[in-house]
Design a protein around this nucleic acid. Structure first.
Length: 509
RNA sequence: GAUUCUGUAGCUCAGCUGGUAGAGCAAUACACUUUUAAUGUAUGGGUCUCGGGUUCGAAUCCCGACAGAAUCACCA
């Protein structure tokens, strides 16, 4: 951190000395009893009833307008902002007006924490305001906050002046972003509410929330490059999990019928608007169910989330209105490709698929097999077209080593991905529970790895051992929580729904 | 990783074809007891991201580094 202090920082530090001279602790230890918050007062105060006549409230000073022997100030607490009215008379004890003349008028800065007691009234202009009778200084701010002001025109449209917008500063100093930008807090409150809604829904249906290891010695359950670390005492490498799938299935083997976990996953890949190195996926597994049941359950869950957050199933995302009203459209991946290209790929061999890719100017290489080519065709030509929630079903077996083979369609598996707004939001299977087949699939993956596919899965022998003891039929799903939060809060970037998105470290000189 | 754009006061931004930096808010001082982007008067505040180069002279032009954003690639 730079030792260079700006003029304003020096001034604020000098004010600390002034506090000391006056015998006022700028960082008092004792608690300040609060009996309400800004939002309660603003929404419940009634000028005729004269309620809220003995309020005690604390917050951060966000604006102050000094007017000689009186002052108006605005404080912000967790729930919003409220205006204060302070007069010199009210803060004068005997002949001593130090509190007003020195502290309020000279030592107070935007960003400071204060606590006040008083009564609520409405000013001439109709603003609900706290008339301060007692004032306590609670904490000095030594760094000037960005000042963001708002004006309202007659229609009530809010114009923001000098908004704090630099993305680098906003993400690196999220604490500042949260203080000064109204709306940021709301996004994160919605995210939390969304997760609570999901948790409640799963619990209501018998789900059991569990924790499984983040440090794994085999990074399984997905195809991605892991972060590697090292355990000193054991002298072995460990991987930060890329998925928790194989652990949740072990719990199904152990006899739990419905387990779920909000899993922080880590993938050592590129970062962009929809990818952060650590991200959250909800996975859950339900015994004796198949992927059809999972589609029914998932669309009910999404519908419930939309209603909980928006009061309706129609959610505005960018320029689109997305309807989360169940049921969602369902279409096989091969049909989706046919719809988009007019080509029936269901009976094509690898060579024909490769030709088709070339025809559509999709880059292919020799390591790509039959399934990968179909996947490429889909993601290049179809994915973006599914704006309304759509279940894409029945993927090629090669791409899905943990999925049960389709009950009637050879070469395919019982898998679906849920596409919304052109992005994959969820991925689910009728889970493969045949240990012989699972071993064979892992061995296929091992061959792919030898062929140079660095996304192929490792063989997890303990997981195979668990399957050999027997796993009931089970359907499981992974839902991208960050991407769902982006949808539900209408944010175009994952950084807007993560408190502290990953960034390159700041240089310390 | 590639391409493009961006980096100037605490914040938001101007700064033209190169001539030693400007506004609003914020800060400081004074005035003001119902203001609300409060107002009025005055004042201070800058390693122009960093390092090279061209030039009599660089915030400005060139090269490089650093950081961020967008697009692409990668990432089921």
């Amino acid at each position: 951190m730079s030792e260079h202090l700006s003029e304003q920082e020096i001034v604020r530090r000098e004010k600390l000395k002034e506090f000391e001279r006056l015998g006022i602790n700028p960082y008092p230890a004792e608690l300040f009893e609060v009996n309400c918050n800004s939002n309660q007062i603003l929404s419940e105060y009634n000028d005729e009833l004269k309620n809220f006549q003995e309020v005690s409230i604390a917050g951060r000073l966000m604006a102050i307008r000094l007017m000689g022997k009186a002052a108006f100030a605005v404080i912000e607490d967790q729930h919003g902002r409220i205006q204060l009215y302070v007069s010199r008379n009210d803060l004068t004890v005997g002949e001593d007006a130090t509190l007003f003349d020195e502290v309020v008028k000279k030592l107070l800065d935007i960003g400071d924490f204060i606590g006040v007691k008083g009564f609520v009234f409405k000013t001439r202009t109709g603003e609900t305001t706290i008339h301060v009778k007692e004032f306590k200084f609670l904490g000095k701010s030594l760094r000037p906050l960005p000042i963001v002001k708002e004006t309202k025109d007659e229609q009530g449209n809010v114009t923001v002046h000098d908004a704090f917008v630099d993305p680098e500063l906003r993400y690196r100093q999220r604490y500042v972003d949260l203080v000064v930008n109204s709306g940021v807090r709301e996004t994160f409150l919605k995210r939390t509410k969304m997760i609570q809604t999901i948790r409640d829904f799963l619990n209501e249906h018998g789900g059991l929330e569990v924790d499984t290891p983040v440090l794994q010695n085999i990074p399984g359950g997905a195809a991605a490059r892991p972060f590697v670390t090292h355990h000193n005492a054991l002298d072995v490498p460990f991987y930060l999990r890329i998925a928790n799938e194989l652990y949740l299935k072990r719990l199904i083997v152990g006899g739990f019928d419905f387990v779920y976990e909000f899993s922080r996953n880590f993938r050592n890949e590129g970062m962009d608007r929809t990818h952060n190195p650590e991200f959250t996926v909800l996975e859950f597994y339900v015994a004796y169910k198949d992927y059809f049941w999972m589609m029914d359950f998932t669309e009910k869950l999404f519908e419930k989330i939309a209603i909980a957050l928006h009061g309706t199933t129609d959610v505005k995302v960018g320029d689109n209105i997305i309807s989360f009203k169940a049921p969602f459209k369902r279409i096989g991946i091969l049909d989706a490709i046919q719809e988009a290209t007019g080509e029936d790929v269901s009976n094509m061999n690898e060579e024909q698929l490769r030709e088709l890719c070339k025809k559509h100017r999709i880059e292919v290489d020799n390591s790509m097999g039959h399934g990968k080519l179909i996947d490429e065709l889909f993601s290049e030509l179809c994915e973006k077209k599914f704006v309304q929630p759509t279940f894409i079903m029945d993927y090629p077996v090669e791409m899905s080593p943990l999925t049960k083979k389709h009950r009637s369609k050879p070469g395919l598996v019982e898998r679906f991905e849920l596409m919304i707004n052109g992005k994959e939001l969820a991925n689910a299977y009728s889970e493969l529970n045949d240990p012989i087949d699972q071993r064979a699939r892992f061995e296929e993956q091992a061959k792919l790895m030898e062929r140079g596919d660095d996304e192929a899965m490792f063989i997890d022998h303990d997981f195979l051992r668990a399957l050999e003891y027997g796993m009931p039929p089970v359907s499981g799903i992974g839902i991208g929580i960050d991407r769902l939060a982006m949808l539900m809060t209408n944010q175009p970037s994952i950084q807007e729904v993560l408190f502290f998105p990953q960034m390159r470290p700041e240089k310390t000189e």
